[in-house]
């Protein structure tokens, strides 16, 4: 605990010096090795190989239909909800092969939270939304649950706005508040990784800004992988960026490099707005 705190502060100071630089010695949360994925006969992901470092923000950018959402949903195996999906290759989450039957999908998803494109709170109260995760993992003590609600909502920068109406239905919140509630719901089970699938695409600019600030705050504790089709957003909030095109990783590098000196012509065309 102590050492983790120390490392957090180290990271913070490092952040202050140069926002977009990644510490080389951090370990990886994900190792993806030759991942292929098919929807029936259509191949959506082709030989994806990349490592994702911990406690950083990794952005996945690319035009619509390039496989970025499919890729992020493979990381917590949500793609398996579509019955015709087939995969090959390996994905390791902290050295556990996620396709291995011994590593249960429930365990994986407990460690890897996900925030979706459209805010999707449950049709329950704000309080019930946040305690859903802890409840399914067996926490019943009211006091503990209350603490989790306060901590999670504070971490998601929503506590001050909703603390007086925790029992009200979550559907009464604005879109941006709903999305932060979904983030709080993820944080309640203290995951290791946060997957975000275009979390601001349904939100107005002010709500988007709040989520972006939140992401900067959250990366001190969590590893964040965010899909976005907004290049400015990727530039603003991420440390590493992977550019996807037609199911392949064209380029994967520090965000500053991707935007200032891309190695591949296609990357340069995309980030300079010539297509996509």
């Amino acid at each position: 605990m102590q050492s983790e705190k120390k490392r957090d502060t180290m990271l913070q100071t490092e952040d202050n010096r140069s926002t977009n630089q990644v510490k080389k010695e951090t370990s990886n949360v994900y190792k993806v090795d030759k991942l292929n994925l098919w929807y029936g006969k259509d191949q959506a992901l082709k030989d994806i190989t990349l490592d994702i470092p911990e406690k950083t923000v990794t952005a996945i950018i690319g035009p619509s239909g390039c496989g970025k959402s499919t890729f992020i949903k493979t990381l917590n195996r949500l793609t398996e909800m579509v019955p015709i999906v087939k995969t090959s290759g390996e994905v390791y989450y902290r050295d556990n092969n996620i396709f291995n039957k011994k590593f249960s999908v429930e365990k994986l998803r407990t460690k890897v939270g996900m925030v979706f494109q459209k805010p999707n709170p449950f049709p329950k109260s704000i309080y019930e939304n946040v305690v859903y995760g802890p409840r399914i993992h067996g926490i019943k003590d009211k006091k503990v649950l209350d603490e989790i609600v306060e901590r999670s909502l504070k971490d998601a920068a929503l506590w001050d706005e909703v603390k007086d109406r925790l029992k009200e239905n979550a559907f009464g919140l604005s879109g941006g508040q709903q999305q932060r509630l979904c983030i709080a719901r993820c944080l309640a089970i203290e995951p290791d990784v946060l997957l975000m699938d275009e979390p601001t695409s349904a939100l107005d600019p002010i709500s988007t800004l709040k989520i972006e600030e939140l992401v900067q705050e959250l990366k001190k504790k969590y590893s964040i992988i965010i899909v976005t089709h907004n290049m400015q957003q990727a530039g603003r909030i991420s440390d590493r960026t992977a550019f996807f095109l037609n199911g392949e990783v064209v380029e994967y590098d520090d965000t500053s490099n991707i935007f200032s000196s891309p190695q591949d012509q296609r990357t340069e065309d995309y980030v300079s707005g010539r297509f996509g």
Binding site: E106, M114, F116, N120, P123, G133, R135, I136, R185
Partner: peptide, 21 residues
């Protein structure tokens, strides 16, 4: 909506928990 299923499964809920809750 299937978003409800995704949200629940995404938090490590089993099929039965998602169904029942």
């Amino acid at each position: 909506p299937s978003e409800m299923r995704e949200a629940s499964f995404g938090m490590g809920a089993t099929k039965w928990q998602t169904m029942f809750r």
